[in-house]
């Protein structure tokens, strides 16, 4: 069974008289437990694709089934509910709340999910220990290194046990050593069965994935599966 099944996805942005065709008909399926890298030149439509399959945006046309549910027609609060329960995001620039502790940041999705205070604390601490930051849970983002901040963001993405983990250039703002540590974390999560979709420019990062989708000018150029060793 596919976690994600998209067919003929298109996304058009209209800028005044001009229309930008960011996606021009994309179809693919993703199975439970896959680790996928999406690659392609700048402006090719990677982030646009992630926004749509991450339920942050709706496609102009095409269908999108997430866990067998048609979601391309949903809007507003229905999508918010799906993002909250099914999807975890990791961004290039971390997007942590600057004035909140690491623990508070990780608890945020649980607050919107309506989990009680006790459950929030327990699950957030658990997620932080999964990324090896239990000892830093009272620190604010400004008191953490870039790699640590990204690990807090990963803990936040994982805390609600999402079906899919999305990461848009998670190592883009990190030096190679810390980037490598973060990729190790993704590798471990994949080993534990987590479905991961990762956007990247870097070949070494993509090398961690089992499958690489290349996008160019809003279309899939190639979809390559590595043979399992």
């Amino acid at each position: 069974m596919n976690v994600i099944q998209v067919k003929d996805l298109t996304k058009h942005y209209s800028l005044g008289t001009q229309t930008v065709e960011a996606l021009r008909g994309v179809s693919f399926g993703i199975e439970q437990g896959e680790f996928i890298a999406i690659m392609g030149p700048s402006g090719s439509g990677k982030s646009t694709l992630m926004n749509i399959i991450g339920c942050l945006d709706s496609p102009t046309d095409g269908t999108y089934h997430l866990n067998n549910q048609e979601v391309s027609t949903l809007e507003g609060d229905e999508l918010a509910g799906i993002r909250n329960k099914e999807i975890g995001f990791v961004f290039q620039n971390f997007h942590l709340l600057a004035r909140n502790s690491a623990l508070d940041n990780v608890m945020l999705p649980l607050k919107y999910a309506g989990v009680d205070k006790e459950g929030q604390l327990k699950r957030a601490k658990n997620a932080l220990s999964q990324v090896g930051l239990e000892s830093r849970m009272d620190h604010q983002p400004s008191e953490l290194s870039g790699g640590q901040q990204q690990r807090v963001a990963i803990a936040r993405a994982l805390v609600n046990n999402p079906s899919i983990l999305f990461a848009d250039e998670p190592t883009g703002n990190l030096d190679s050593q810390t980037g490598h540590d973060v990729m190790q974390l993704f590798h471990n999560l994949h080993q534990q069965g987590q479905t991961i979709i990762l956007i990247t420019h870097e070949n070494e990062v993509a090398a961690e994935a089992q499958r690489t989708i290349f996008i160019k000018d809003g279309l899939i150029e190639s979809d390559i599966r590595k043979e399992k060793l």
Binding site: D77, A80, H95, L108, Y112
Partner: peptide, 15 residues
């Protein structure tokens, strides 16, 4: 951006 993040994490219109 904070509002965008909160929405990405599942904040509803009302929240």
């Amino acid at each position: 951006r904070e509002i965008g993040l909160r929405k990405a994490l599942g904040a509803t219109h009302q929240a």
